[in-house]
Design a protein around this nucleic acid. Sequence first.
DNA 1: GATGAATGAGTCTTCATTCAT
DNA 2: CATGAATGAAGACTCATTCAT
Lengths: 201, 201, 201, 201
Amino acid sequence: MNRRLTPRGRERRRQLMDYAIERFAENGYHPTSVAEIVQGLGVGKGVFYWYFKSKEELFLEILRETQLDLRRAQQQAIEGVDDPVKRIEIGIRTTMRWSSEHAHLNRLVQFAATEERFLPALRKGQDVAIRDAMRHVKEGIERGEIRDTDPDYIAHAILGITAQLARVFLHERGQPWEQVADAAVTLVLDGILATDRSPVG
Amino acid sequence: MNRRLTPRGRERRRQLMDYAIERFAENGYHPTSVAEIVQGLGVGKGVFYWYFKSKEELFLEILRETQLDLRRAQQQAIEGVDDPVKRIEIGIRTTMRWSSEHAHLNRLVQFAATEERFLPALRKGQDVAIRDAMRHVKEGIERGEIRDTDPDYIAHAILGITAQLARVFLHERGQPWEQVADAAVTLVLDGILATDRSPVG
Amino acid sequence: MNRRLTPRGRERRRQLMDYAIERFAENGYHPTSVAEIVQGLGVGKGVFYWYFKSKEELFLEILRETQLDLRRAQQQAIEGVDDPVKRIEIGIRTTMRWSSEHAHLNRLVQFAATEERFLPALRKGQDVAIRDAMRHVKEGIERGEIRDTDPDYIAHAILGITAQLARVFLHERGQPWEQVADAAVTLVLDGILATDRSPVG
Amino acid sequence: MNRRLTPRGRERRRQLMDYAIERFAENGYHPTSVAEIVQGLGVGKGVFYWYFKSKEELFLEILRETQLDLRRAQQQAIEGVDDPVKRIEIGIRTTMRWSSEHAHLNRLVQFAATEERFLPALRKGQDVAIRDAMRHVKEGIERGEIRDTDPDYIAHAILGITAQLARVFLHERGQPWEQVADAAVTLVLDGILATDRSPVG
DNA sequence: GATGAATGAGTCTTCATTCAT
DNA sequence: CATGAATGAAGACTCATTCAT
């Protein structure tokens, strides 16, 4: 589907993607039929297959776009920030805000993890995110700001906390993202132990 | 399906569940057909519906059983342990071991989160897990061992790190659970920052 | 199924037929499964096939029994009555009473008329009923009491009115059978026209 | 299924209904599968569900259409006829002719009476027919032309005779409708008794 | 006699995809 | 570009019947 699209065509395509995201997120990928998508927009089935080769292709497209979009937001936010720990913090905050603004997409990503055929596309994006995080972590370790543990673990820990808190507190409980971000940052940086337990310097 | 089952019947049921878990985990819930399941066991289609009301019901059954089983393992492991931080640590380790021994079930739980109709059952189990964790956290806070933050956040942070590291390092990369557990415990307890950054006591 | 049955066996068989009649009448023949029938009686499936060769055979059995039973009631009622018109009247009344006492069976007979394979059995019984009625009609014509028209038509008219009024007023509206019988008798004998239209004497 | 249909679509739909009527009438509703219907027309299975929501819906559609069509024929036939007894007569004759021209539909209507889920639709149509007949009957009573009995009974007697004679003499024995209609009219109007039994002559 | 278990052809229905217009 | 129509494989589920115990 490398069609050259007119502006109107691009708009149609956008509409289809947006509506599909909504339905996929609400109902699940499989339970949402192509018929449902085109009916929701009041167009014929041909339209769908004009813009997308298949339902699967559409989903992959959504997945790629999603991951790319979040990454762009991250990069923009940390631009020019020198301190790696600060960059991590900003990364967490940006994820929270973006996540609260794109609530729908969470389930899609999660679903992608449950079927073999979507895993490659999913991993590609997640690897990028991990690599980004690891860069900051490594730099932090070099500077002595971050504990000298396997940066891979650390990067995943960061993503794990962030994703979990986002899912529960943003999407299920609807808390403001700033508050959730604060908690995530604290927990990531300092762990859960009372600070005075840490041995003296 | 509250059939009174003979021993032979119970065995059949178990077989069906186990094989279904395997297929669901490998292929996804929707792509796995009932026909595939019964063919895999070399039995007729009616057998499936003799033991389960529907494919959906089977999935829910698996979900419930899964959550119950993990919880049992946890409770057994922490029995008699007095220190709440220790209990948290043991909880994380138990999850890791259980998770490495029941690799299949991870995807199922994740899939359950992507369709509305499975959410209630899923949440029920997760709420229990969170509540369990929160009990330890609260006690830790009271004893001054855990930072005095919202225990809800802390509990979710623990589960988030554990789940993420389990998924990636156990299931994707096949690392030994003890090692992953160590990392998880450290990150949960101390966060990512270099310890000497924490102000003296 | 020409089994020699013990008294207990005959009772079981009766139970099965009665319950089946009830279910067939309420739900229809096809929508009622053998499983439903045996479950309703709390017995295993083997029992059913011990007493009946098949579901179809059971239905045919019910059909035959029904028609035989009604006929017996008729014959008993008109025994010794000499006047053919009186016999017709009694026949109508007996049908009404029997029909009100065996409400369930009506639908079964009606259903039998809608599938080719049940028609032969159905017709056999109905032919008998028509022949019975025609005997009275012919005699009535000979005696000059009944209009000299094709007795076949007359016999069917009698059955038609009786069946229709029974269905509607007995089974749908629950009126007492005596009242419905009165109406049927009058309409059959005198038609609907005002009597004074018949040339005065 | 409130699809906007093209002329071609309307034709398909008609084809499906007509063929289904034929099969339902010949074989019965349940024994006729959707597969059989579409195969009979040499189309794919999806076609059926493009035009009808379900097999049940199709049947109900047929039922409604049938009843509506007969009623239209009746109303057209009695238009402008003043005498109520004459209108009843014409009604009977019209039913006979229509019934002989739509032989298939008889069994369908009969079948509808044997399953709970079809009864509402069936009754709706029959109530209309009864109400129509009752109007004529009442007027006839007022004019002194019809015996002053419960018009409800009379109306049902008319329909009962007509239906029964139609079923037997038209559909089973293939007699010409005019002849059957004559008999029905006579029997309805005058009953079965010899006229000279009516007082004096 | 009776039961729970098993069979598997057959049912209705859905749906991604294609195509004539 | 777009639509309504069509395809047909595949899906979940049912059920009369049989059988080992």
